[in-house]
Design a protein around this nucleic acid. Structure first.
Length: 958
RNA sequence: GCGGAUAUGGCGUAAUCGGUAGCCGCGUCAGACUUAGGAUCUGGUUCCGAAAGGAGUGGGGGUUCGAGUCCCCCUAUCCGCACCA
């Protein structure tokens, strides 16, 4: 009987579904293991072959763990909120829920055909009210929490209210938007509005006017990770910086813990590095530079706000951040960012016009322009001076947009000799450059002759007062100690990470459980969740520029009756307007892995029992492109829930595997420029300039050979095409590009399943190369894997119960060991090779023994579950192969009686000798001398040394 | 510019501890079976060479009896960040 995958695969898929073979309970005496895939956004295009790569890998591992006796949680769901469905809705009027539902159905159909072992009873969808209830719930908890820097933990905000009433901010160290300082008396004297305003400064989910990435085209703000090179990731529209009142999550409070936690997880170094980079921890010093009041009579009293509170003799001053406190003796100018509030106050009348012009120009520059013209130096002198607190020199204060408002204090001390940006600025405006670090002690040169600054943190201080002669590292400490002593600065840590903007001016997202009473936001009572996404007439922003929820008729909160009512009832006494923004995509994906543990629970996010059993994700498989988005937000989300005592592990994903992207392999035909209807086969193209390369659909190309008839039918303009053939074939060119519709290189898994079956697709995707590696999709090799499965199938045609020979047992036991090792280290491409070798060997040995073939089925079951299940039942088993026991290998079959030792002379391999497995150096040496070939290399000479490595090699040094 | 990764036949790749480089597959060549083959099977296939032999893991150096593997320098490609003080 032939290998009829088209009949076998659907039959077993139905069997698995009907018998709920992949249903998993939260109660088991087996050890637990949690294998998770990054759930997909169900786009209209459906799955391409790149998507299942990670799913197949994780499925293999999940099935393997199950066969090894684990209770394996392996769920799947959909990240169902998102922009494409909404854009589609704006264009067509079709409700995003319908589009999404349709896409999900298509995804499910495609996934089912590949034979995954997902427990679909646990499916979650982020747009399902039963799910987003808990997204909203978490938001309320964040809103009701603050972060204590001393205990490095989130705490209930109610606690803070009590403390404020007793001691004000005295002795507190809190994560906040703006540092504040008030006494208990002040707090107690404030009214509700003022108190709420103050509390907002500390909440972990807070509302604030912040510079945001505004994308006018999409009509929404975007998070930093959603913007690349000043363009939106989705759509590629320009993004500008704009000050807007937005919800944010105070993820910066967790910056240090997010860095530290990376030490404890098994992720690739590169991804950890990406996250460390994104968090951008840098150590340095905060230093207060006094203004030179004498030189500048117009410093306003407001500048006092910049004074260190501990300074007994207040002098107007401002704070800078530097990672190079050791270079403070080399400061030759100061720079403020164009947004700095001090600019207005210090600018001299003579400079005022110039400064104002510059600031206006800088503000009107788009983020994209600014980033594109990084090399262009611009700036203007304010006319004001600061005093270097260590040298008491007067230093000019400039304004330039190379200093960013959002990092540090938006002001720097410029040390042109030792910072490339300051160097460029100094050269451009002809400002002095002073060397204060040299590679060797006391060796200095004239910076005027330098081509670039000396940025490295190595060498010795020179020209630097009391630190002269010290090593750079020591000088840093010495300067920090000194400024600390003087009360003008201290050691500090800065992070590049910004708080996560949490509002989106869109329709298709989770509504905020928030209403506004006298413009103060209040959260809904938890019992009233979920707050359902309202129906709207239009999905566009309103005429007044409000988000789409502004179109909703029923979008007001009746505080007394605790329900959503008509907008017309808003009286701002008992009925209030609800928040019009929705939450961003990462809201729903930040905690979904926890919900899988207990997906049907209506009373809790997930039960204590469930989380205590599953703990956290043991293995997470997904793309590295989420390194600065989802993978940071989810860690933050998890750490917050950990602080609440809801989860038991403070890191959500113990081990992370990043599957490489699958690129497309495009095919081209070459059209002659001289003759518009003539297509020249690749090998006959003499000069690339004579032809135009045209993308051709990969579905009408087989092994780079064009199907000429299909090509003529493909598009009308090719109907009369003529060809210059080589060997009667038209050979296409190819190139590796992104998989995309417009390049006609999208490979759809369904077509391959129809043609070769799911098992072949699964094996082939693994055979392509290491899971972690990015690689182009190339269908050319799939035949080899298909041939292997047909061969494998034939082995089971006549299974005999006779006992197997030692040689046969050896083959299978070696396979057991190899496959087990391969799976454990995620090397699935070599596993597939091992199956091929094993099958070749057994076929050659004409082996048909059950003793050998049965364990082999269990080995292959994780990779090719359908064929394994079919043959397993053909062998007479009643139960599914999924619950079989992973075979154990027997050492005795792995040890050879004799070993062919390679014999090398001076490291160069010359011949081999047969030796018993256990033999001594003397015996080995005697055998080498006795060997015929050795005379040639040895002659009469005695070797200097004989190196004998058991089971490895004999090397003779002459 | 900073950080990370990668580099092996015509192609995808393998070599798990520093020990015979190129397993397995594609492609290709030769053969068998066949009316036929886009089916199946057998054998060859890193390069140079008729062979003996020699060279060979991006380039250069080093450690070692022995290096694809470890160390240093360089080059190329990919990825991440990017005026982050």
């Amino acid at each position: 009987m032939d290998y009829n995958f088209g009949e076998i695969e659907p039959r077993w898929q139905n069997y698995w579904r009907e018998h709920r073979v992949y249903h998993i309970d939260n109660v088991s005496d087996r050890p637990h293991y949690y294998v998770l895939d990054m759930f997909p956004y169900p786009s209209g295009a459906g799955l391409h072959v790149g998507h299942p790569l990670g799913y197949i890998a994780s499925d293999i591992y999940a099935r393997y763990k199950r066969l090894r006796g684990y209770n394996v949680l392996h769920p799947m769901g959909y990240d169902a909120y998102g922009l494409p469905a909404e854009q589609y809705a704006i264009q067509t009027g079709q409700h995003p829920a319908i589009t999404t539902e349709k896409n999900i159905a298509r995804y499910r159909e495609q996934l089912d055909k590949i034979g995954f072992s997902f427990d679909w009873d646990r499916e979650v969808r982020t747009c399902d009210p039963k799910y987003y209830k808990w997204t909203q719930w978490t938001f309320i908890q964040l809103f009701n929490s603050y972060y204590c820097n001393q205990c490095q933990k989130a705490r209930p905000i109610a606690e803070l209210v009590d403390v404020f009433a007793k001691q004000g901010t005295e002795g507190l160290d809190l994560a906040c938007t703006e540092p504040m300082d008030f006494s208990a008396e002040e707090w107690n004297s404030w009214d509700e509005a003022k108190r709420q305003q103050v509390l907002m400064n500390y909440r972990l989910a807070y509302l604030a006017d912040i510079p945001v990435n505004w994308c006018a085209e999409l009509g929404t703000v975007l998070a930093n990770d959603e913007v690349v090179n000043g363009l939106s990731v989705r759509g590629g529209y320009p993004v500008e910086r704009k000050l807007m009142r937005q919800w944010s999550l105070r993820i910066t409070a967790y910056a240090q813990r997010l860095v530290d936690g990376l030490e404890r997880v098994e992720w690739t170094d590169s991804l950890k590095e990406i996250q460390r980079n994104w968090i951008g921890r840098s150590e340095g010093a905060a230093v207060w530079f006094p203004l030179d009041v004498k030189s500048n009579g117009n410093v306003l009293p407001g500048a006092q706000a910049y004074m260190p509170q501990f300074d007994p003799q207040p002098v107007p001053s401002f704070e800078i951040f530097t990672t190079r406190p050791d270079t403070i003796f080399g400061v030759t100018f100061m720079v403020l960012c164009p947004e700095h509030e001090l600019i207005d106050q210090i600018t001299t009348p003579e400079q005022r016009q110039q400064v104002q012009d510059y600031v206006t120009w800088a503000k009107n520059r788009s983020e994209r322009e600014r980033q594109a013209e990084v090399k262009k130096v611009s700036g203007v002198f304010t006319g004001a001076y600061a005093i270097n607190p260590l040298t008491e020199e007067r230093i000019p204060i400039w304004v330039s947009d190379y200093v960013l408002a959002g990092y540090g204090t938006g002001a720097i001390m410029a040390v042109p000799a030792h910072d490339s940006r300051d160097f460029a600025f100094a050269r451009h405006f002809n400002l002095p450059i002073r060397q204060v670090v040299s590679l060797e002690k006391d060796v200095v040169s004239d910076p005027a002759t330098w081509e670039e600054s000396m940025d490295a943190k190595t060498g010795y201080s020179v020209n630097s007062g009391f630190v002269t002669g010290m090593k750079v590292k020591d000088a840093m400490k010495a300067v920090i100690n000194k400024i600390d002593e003087m009360g003008i600065g201290h050691k500090t840590v800065n992070y590049r990470l910004r708080d996560a903007i949490f509002s989106r001016q869109r329709y298709w997202g989770e509504p905020f459980p928030v209403y506004y009473k006298n413009n103060i936001p209040y959260t809904l009572p938890e019992e009233c969740l979920p707050l359902l996404l309202p129906e709207v007439k239009e999905f566009k922003p309103t005429a007044t520029g409000e988000p789409p929820l502004g179109h909703a008729d029923r979008w007001a909160w009746d505080e007394k009756n605790r329900c959503v009512v008509e907008n017309s009832k808003i009286d701002n006494v008992t009925v209030f307007p609800l928040e019009l923004s929705t939450m961003p995509g990462f809201a729903g994906s930040s905690g979904y892995y926890l919900r899988y543990m207990d997906p049907a629970n209506d009373d809790r996010y997930f039960s204590e029992q469930a989380v205590n059993y599953w703990q956290n994700v043991d293995l997470y498989v997904g793309g590295a492109e989420h390194g600065t988005g989802h993978l940071i937000y989810a860690r933050f989300w998890n750490k917050f829930l950990y602080d609440l005592g809801m989860v038991v592990k403070d890191e959500p994903f113990q081990k992370l595997i990043n599957q490489g992207m699958i690129q497309g392999r495009s095919n081209f035909v070459y059209r002659s420029k001289a003759d518009n209807n003539l297509y020249i086969s690749k090998g006959l193209v003499k000069d690339k300039d004579d032809v135009t390369a045209i993308h051709v659909d990969i579905n009408i190309v087989d092994n780079d050979v064009l199907d000429i008839e299909k090509f003529r039918q493909w598009r009308p303009e090719f109907a009369d095409a003529r060809f210059e053939l080589e060997d009667d074939k038209y050979v296409c060119g190819w190139e590796i590009e992104k998989m995309s519709k417009s390049m006609f290189n999208v490979q759809n898994p369904d077509d391959l399943v129809v043609r070769y079956g799911a098992d072949t697709l699964r094996l082939y995707e693994m055979f392509l190369g290491p899971v972690e590696q990015a690689k182009p999709w190339d269908t050319n090799g799939i035949e080899g894997v298909f041939r292997f499965l047909k061969k494998f199938w034939r082995m089971y045609e006549n299974v005999s119960d006779e006992s197997a020979s030692k040689t046969e047992l050896k083959i299978v036991h070696q396979a057991i060991k190899k496959i087990t090792d391969d799976i454990e280290r995620f090397s699935f491409n070599t596993s597939v090779s091992t199956f091929m070798i094993c099958t070749n060997d057994l076929t050659a040995a004409k082996c048909n023994k059950r003793e050998v073939l049965e364990p082999l089925l269990v080995l292959i079951a994780p990779f090719a579950p359908h064929i394994a299940e079919e043959l397993w039942h053909q062998l007479g088993h009643e139960t599914t192969v999924c619950d079989a026991e992973w075979p154990k290998f027997d050492e005795q079959y792995l040890v050879e009686d004799s070993v062919k030792y390679p014999v090398s002379f001076n490291g160069k391999m010359r011949f081999t000798v047969d030796l018993p497995t256990k033999c001594t150096q003397e015996e080995a040496w005697a055998a080498v001398k006795a060997a015929e070939e050795s005379r040639k290399w040895l002659g009469d000479a005695e070797p200097k040394k004989v190196i004998f490595v058991p089971n490895k090699i004999i090397n003779i040094v002459l």
